[in-house]
Design a binder for these strands. Sequence first.
DNA 1: TCGAATTGCTCAGTGTGCTGACTATTTCTG
DNA 2: CAGAAATAGTCAGCACACTGAGCAATTCGA
Lengths: 145, 145
Amino acid sequence: MAAVDLSTHPGHLARRLQQAHSLLWGAMVSEETTSPQFAVLNALEEKPGMDQRTLSEHVHLDRSTIADLVARLAGRELVERVRDPMDGRRNVLKLTEQGSRVHRKLVTRTARMNRVFLAPLDVDEQETLLRLIARVAGAAEELRG
Amino acid sequence: MAAVDLSTHPGHLARRLQQAHSLLWGAMVSEETTSPQFAVLNALEEKPGMDQRTLSEHVHLDRSTIADLVARLAGRELVERVRDPMDGRRNVLKLTEQGSRVHRKLVTRTARMNRVFLAPLDVDEQETLLRLIARVAGAAEELRG
DNA sequence: TCGAATTGCTCAGTGTGCTGACTATTTCTG
DNA sequence: CAGAAATAGTCAGCACACTGAGCAATTCGA
């Protein structure tokens, strides 16, 4: 059977998009703190005191991945992770002073990076792209909740 | 500083899109053969005899990742990898009989899966989404070639 | 032609991300 | 209230994906 054109395959394109993004992230935002790590810092800035399961739902990562990721952030003392005295199963998470500082710094940089990343498109197209991706991803996430 | 809305961040959306895709891939296409592996099989179906560097450019993965990936495919005897007698640096790659069979089977399944994946959008929107992603990813890839 | 640069691959190390199995704790139910 | 079910987290194992370092083979240039 003949080979297919991968540029019509959303999965392949999604991977390329993410790959391109992480390259630019390393150059323009941070080499130490990755994009998923930023997502975690951002979620904890918004809602301090979350446990890991709640956090994993917020940033759309599973519990194992969150555990690793939080452990790294805790190791760098950007996140504080303590056992909930009310419920011994939960880890309660919040940003440290330093974590908050890092988050603040990255917010400005990611804004700048996103502009550069989307620069090949005009403003209407940028809005369309984000909306369409969100619809497809959202629909798929809903299927398996 | 206040937290930002990650749903306006293309990197975060790209990750979610890819994650949703790989979930559906596992359910509708294959549990053994991943989407990047399919990309490799597809490239080798189109151009047998490629070396790993050329392959890595075709599927937009770096040499190390390709090496791992090809090793796994070779282990499953879907790909044949032999040292080029003309140029002792190169590995010459091609599909085995079995690799070709697997590719053929997955082509039909991925087509079906892509339809389901993009079903939340109408046909115009689907075309737009693919085109916009390709433009952003392509532009970024060009920057660092 | 011989040394230097280039090229292709491999390897170690790190991070992301999943599944499935296991542990500990809490909650629910008879 | 005791046993069962549900919940939160951890751990092992696998795959993807990158960087940077190193090795072997080829090609280029003085």
